[in-house]
């Protein structure tokens, strides 16, 4: 069949170039952990430590009178407060715009809200939004540095960075910077609703950059097989015991009821297979750190005893959040503003 021979030959022909994952326009933006190289991660960790240790009075002069907008389209306690404290700790003026108390309610678009905040003098925007990818839209339309505080099911980069800092504090005490080998030999299991979790996506893409092995664990409805292809260093293990036995860190996730979109899930069955309780923890991972990005649902993905137990570092995570977010806010307003201008000029 000459046709088949011809077909085979044609398969090797040139195709239009694929687009790479795009870099942000502004050097100070953090929208995905994708653009965070190990060097950038290392610099952020070092800056976090520096800021944390700095005299609070001196620290508060760093961004004195600079304006930062927090634009929150979803309710949030810890992330919003954490960013707000971080920005205020650096002396910045913050303004909170939330979907419940603003013109957003009246149908204003993200573009127009962003442009309005810019006109009011905002120099950076911290965005929490229910739509994946919304930080790209906001950055493109405003030209301002954007910190992604969680976008839909996509990413939550500051959470992954604070999780990393928490892990380092326990497993690599004294290490304030990072290389591609820093977490070599460390296995982190992420358990639960990975499909709908932006925290899971950011962590599973960030931690392997530092050498960690990441095991994803959950039922097929909440963890599609394709997740293992999302980046290097990822594996799927559906058996929680098998995953835990290999892990120094067990990261639990909340079931995102608001994103299940009609998916039927038997919660009793889920708990019997994937709930982190004292018995499981004692038997399979008695030395592991127990993490959770919050908010936790006690009695569902983990028991209250585990959340409050000696292996839990859930509140430490919250603590590390402020230092990491100080570093991100400082970086947003100071990192490579010239490069940012170049990037904008080149894209117009």
């Amino acid at each position: 069949m000459p046709l088949i021979a011809a077909s085979a030959a044609r398969r090797s022909v040139v195709r239009p170039a694929l687009t790479a994952f795009p870099e942000p326009y502004s050097a100070g933006s953090v929208m995905s952990v994708h653009s965070l190289t190990v060097e950038r991660v290392s610099a952020i960790l070092a800056l976090a430590t520096q800021l944390e240790n700095e005299d609070p009075l001196k620290r508060a002069t760093r961004l004195a009178k600079r304006r930062i907008a927090l634009l929150f389209y979803e309710s949030s306690t810890r992330t919003r407060t954490s960013f707000e404290l971080a920005a205020k700790g650096l002396g910045a003026d913050t303004t909170l715009v939330s979907s419940l108390s603003s013109s957003i309610e009246k149908g204003e678009t993200l573009k127009d809200t962003g442009l309005t905040l810019k006109a009011l003098g905002a120099e950076a925007i911290i965005l929490r939004h229910p739509s994946s990818g919304s930080p790209w839209l906001l950055e493109r339309e405003t030209g301002l540095p954007v910190l992604n505080a969680g976008d839909g099911m996509h990413e939550h980069p500051s959470q992954a960075l604070l999780d990393l800092r928490t892990i380092l504090a326990h497993l690599r005490p004294g290490v304030e910077t990072a290389t591609a080998e820093t977490l070599a030999g460390v296995t982190v299991t992420i358990v639960g609703d990975i499909l709908h979790s932006r925290v899971a996506r950011s962590n599973m893409l960030l931690l392997p950059k530092l050498g960690a092995r990441v095991i994803l664990c959950g039922p097929p409805q909440l963890l599609p097989a394709v997740a293992a292809e999302a980046g290097p260093g990822l594996e799927i293990e559906r058996d929680m015991a098998a995953a835990m036995k290999q892990s120094q860190v067990v990261m639990m996730l909340r079931i995102q009821a608001e994103r299940l979109a009609g998916l039927q899930l038997d919660l009793e069955e889920y708990k019997s297979s994937y709930q982190l309780n004292e018995a499981r923890l004692a038997e399979y991972a008695p030395g592991a750190l127990v993490m959770h990005p919050g908010p936790i649902i006690r009695g569902l993905e983990l028991t209250g005893e585990v959340a409050d137990g000696p292996q839990s570092v859930i509140l430490e995570q919250v603590h590390h959040g402020v230092a990491i977010r100080m570093a991100l806010v400082e970086r947003a307003l100071t990192a490579g503003s010239a490069a940012a201008c170049d990037a904008m000029g080149g894209r117009q």
Binding site: S132, G133, D151, G152, M153, H154, E155, L195, R198, R201, P224, V226, A227, E229, A230, G231
Partner: peptide, 8 residues
């Protein structure tokens, strides 16, 4: 995998 990666 691209949709998974992008959270769409």
């Amino acid at each position: 995998v691209t949709a998974f990666r992008l959270g769409l």
